[in-house]
Amino acid sequence: MSESQVALELVDIYKAYGKLEVLKGVSLTAKDGDVISILGSSGSGKSTLLRCINLLEQPAKGEIVIGGEELKLKPGKEGELEAVSRRQLEHMRSRIGFVFQNFNLWPHKTILNNITEAPINVLKQSKEQATARAEELLKKVGLYEKRHAYPGNLSGGQQQRIAIARALAMDPQVLLFDEPTSALDPELVNEVLSVMRELADEGRTMLIVTHEMRFAREVSSQVVFLHQGQIEEIGPPEQVFDNPTSQRVRDFMSSHLG
């Protein structure tokens, strides 16, 4: 088997809000097929790190490389980095699927239109092609029968599964999940995790910020533990969960897996 390609590389990412440093030089590499869970206490910089990858948050320093292509950045007025080329940024964003905590679906569009919008407008697919793919993805997440409904008629778990289908419709190289189950009622969490588990089994490259410890342990090829904007521990799940070198991680695990 050939050496797997690097899907995403983050080099020395810094981010601050005023004097508060949220990320202090985080570097991370995901190869094709890696599932990396990002754990840590609230406020450790997990979500900010994900949002820096596609410039939803602008880092102050660092490099972002997706599939071997470096996102060209320059210092902006506020001292934060911004894309040199809007066009390159849009192209890079189309290769990254982002699943948000609060779904971010368009309430005035049907489920089908939520999924076909970007493939038609960004990837320039025909309506027929985009619709066929959307219907296939809706079957995959178990919601084909809801294709003509609106997001407001669906449960949170259903909306999140639609958000996953929407991300997949762009055929991204990397999928980012920002606490995808934290806004859900407990009984709806498993329906979302089971879709994510299936994606991991298919070899999708995923970075997942999550509090679902058992899930992270089962699906991850690597686990990253962030503390105050730095990587405190990184390694395979059996090491980070069962035998962490850091006392802080040991304390975290014993309180969350107790």
Rank of each mutant, 00 (worst) to 15 (best):
M1P: 15
E3M: 08
E3I: 02
E3V: 06
S4R: 10
Q5V: 04
A7W: 01
A7Y: 04
E9T: 03
L10H: 02
I13A: 03
I13Q: 04
A16Q: 11
A16Y: 11
A16H: 13
G18N: 10
E21G: 06
V22E: 11
L23D: 13
G25V: 08
V26M: 04
V26S: 09
S27H: 06
T29R: 11
A30I: 08
D32G: 02
G33M: 02
G33K: 10
D34L: 00
V35C: 10
S37H: 06
S37K: 00
G40W: 15
G40T: 04
S41K: 09
S42G: 05
S42Y: 03
S44N: 00
S44G: 01
S44W: 06
S44L: 12
G45S: 05
S47K: 00
S47Y: 08
T48L: 04
I53W: 12
L55I: 14
L55F: 14
L56Q: 13
E57H: 05
E57N: 07
K61M: 09
E63A: 14
V65T: 14
I66R: 03
G67T: 12
G67M: 01
G68H: 08
L73R: 00
G76P: 05
G76V: 00
G76D: 15
K77I: 08
G79F: 13
A83V: 13
A83G: 05
A83H: 05
V84I: 15
Q88L: 14
L89W: 07
E90Q: 15
H91K: 15
R95S: 05
R95T: 02
R95F: 01
V99R: 09
F100D: 12
Q101D: 15
N102K: 13
F103I: 06
L105W: 00
L105Q: 10
P107E: 11
H108K: 08
K109I: 01
I111P: 14
N114W: 07
N114Q: 06
I115H: 11
T116K: 15
T116S: 09
T116A: 00
A118V: 07
I120V: 14
K124G: 06
E128Q: 11
A130G: 03
T131L: 08
A132S: 12
A134Y: 13
L137F: 09
L137R: 05
L138H: 10
L138R: 03
K139H: 10
K140N: 01
L143C: 07
Y144G: 11
G152E: 01
N153G: 09
N153L: 11
S155I: 10
S155R: 14
S155Q: 12
G156F: 11
G157A: 03
I162Q: 11
A163K: 13
I164N: 03
A167H: 07
D171M: 04
D171E: 15
P172L: 00
Q173E: 15
D178H: 00
P180V: 08
N190M: 08
M196H: 04
E198R: 02
A200E: 01
D201V: 07
G203C: 09
T205E: 05
L207N: 12
T210S: 13
M213L: 06
F215R: 10
R217N: 14
R217Q: 14
E218M: 04
S221Y: 07
S221E: 05
V223Q: 03
H227V: 07
Q228K: 07
Q230P: 00
Q230H: 03
I231A: 01
E233M: 07
Q239L: 12
V240T: 02
D242F: 01
N243I: 05
R248Q: 11
R248D: 14
R250Y: 04
D251K: 00
D251M: 10
D251F: 02
F252M: 00
